[in-house]
Amino acid sequence: MRHLLNTLFVTSQEIYLSLENENIVAWKGNQIVQRLPLLNLENILYFGHKGASPALLGACAKRNIGFCFFDMNGRFLARVSGTVRGNVLLRKMQYRLSDSDKESCGIARFFIMGKILNARTVLMRMARDHPLSVDQEKFTHIIKMFLRSASDAQTTSDTDELRGIEGNAAQLYFSVFDQLILQNKKSFYFQRRIKRPPADFVNAMLSFTYTILAHDCASALEGAGLDSYVGFLHRDRPGRESLALDLMEELRSIYADRFVLTLINNRLILPVHFQKKENGAVWLNDDGRKVLLAEWQKKKQTMIVHPFLQEKIYWGLIPYVQALLLARYIRGDMDGYPAFVGR
């Protein structure tokens, strides 16, 4: 259990929560492992299957404390809340901001600055750790260009211009992505980003991992009380969780791309884990998906220090923390949204 941002994160499958006076009591089997006062809590995010007592759920509803249930993979299941909830006002503010091009750009540029700076970090680490495997001159040039792009993203007030900055940065990043692959280059190579359908092993892994990350971000936004379908950079489209795509932008390279590269460079994913369709599309087969999903769960359980909160936290909780920070910014509780920028 972790207490961050007035939010209680329960990540153990074995924890059952009950109410004692004005305290949350965490049980593991017949043993009490922790007591925590309800006072000052805004949300409880519960990942597991043991659940909570009706008395605690009723107390949370009465005190307007959001209680959100997720499965162990982070998929949003349900929210328990009282008759009066700040989510209505939060979502109305989200919709108003989304309808304004100026306000949308003001929020979207945080996501894109985070995306560019994280891509820069990935390249810098590669150039530092494997100097003989990369084109140092080209990497140095792109790293400098990323600083300029991040500065341009910070100052623009036009969403279309922001998309252009993001597109140019992505093109630069993927132009050297193949140099980040260190093992089994005969099978795992990258020429360009191909989405629909992926035409090689690396693109297949990227597409699958981005899909998982988008689902995690959507669940996190629902847990924070935001509408995952109403975005700021990605505009409204029926059936598309646009705000989830916005939120995941800053996490693509530092979280998803690094994960894919680790699987390839550590030879955890092999050519036998893929299948090629008649139309040329390449997909992970059942065994490949099992390996990737198992490693994804391991990745989510690793600890890092959150760069803004300066608290140790599981990687898997990063989308949930970022969603809570975004909700606070939209409500006006923060002067800016602190995009996740890794090291």
Rank of each mutant, 00 (worst) to 15 (best):
residue 107 I to G: 02
residue 282 V to T: 04
residue 41 L to I: 03
residue 253 S to T: 06
residue 76 F to W: 03
residue 29 G to E: 00
residue 109 R to H: 04
residue 163 R to F: 11
residue 21 N to C: 15
residue 203 N to A: 12
residue 54 P to K: 13
residue 181 I to T: 01
residue 172 L to G: 08
residue 43 N to H: 11
residue 305 V to A: 09
residue 304 I to W: 00
residue 298 K to E: 05
residue 171 Q to Y: 09
residue 284 L to N: 01
residue 244 A to C: 04
residue 327 A to T: 06
residue 292 L to Y: 01
residue 51 G to R: 08
residue 184 N to F: 05
residue 112 I to V: 15
residue 58 G to E: 03
residue 267 R to D: 12
residue 60 C to V: 06
residue 178 D to Y: 04
residue 60 C to H: 04
residue 193 R to L: 07
residue 304 I to G: 01
residue 58 G to Y: 06
residue 137 E to G: 14
residue 192 R to D: 11
residue 327 A to G: 05
residue 133 S to C: 15
residue 291 V to P: 07
residue 123 L to F: 10
residue 289 R to Y: 08
residue 185 K to D: 02
residue 27 W to L: 06
residue 325 L to H: 02
residue 304 I to R: 03
residue 59 A to R: 13
residue 96 R to V: 12
residue 112 I to D: 04
residue 26 A to F: 10
residue 225 G to W: 03
residue 228 S to F: 03
residue 276 K to C: 05
residue 24 I to C: 05
residue 331 R to P: 07
residue 101 D to Q: 13
residue 334 M to K: 09
residue 83 T to Y: 14
residue 23 N to Y: 13
residue 158 D to M: 09
residue 75 R to Y: 13
residue 259 F to W: 00
residue 166 E to R: 06
residue 240 R to C: 08
residue 68 C to Q: 06
residue 328 R to G: 09
residue 228 S to D: 01
residue 337 Y to K: 04
residue 209 T to W: 02
residue 204 A to V: 08
residue 199 A to D: 15
residue 212 I to W: 01
residue 320 Y to E: 01
residue 46 Y to V: 05
residue 219 S to L: 09
residue 204 A to Q: 03
residue 310 Q to I: 11
residue 263 L to A: 03
residue 18 S to G: 11
residue 307 P to C: 08
residue 225 G to I: 04
residue 57 L to W: 04
residue 180 L to V: 08
residue 102 K to V: 09
residue 14 E to P: 10
residue 80 V to T: 09
residue 79 R to H: 11
residue 92 K to L: 14
residue 22 E to D: 11
residue 9 F to C: 03
residue 121 T to Y: 09
residue 57 L to H: 02
residue 22 E to F: 12
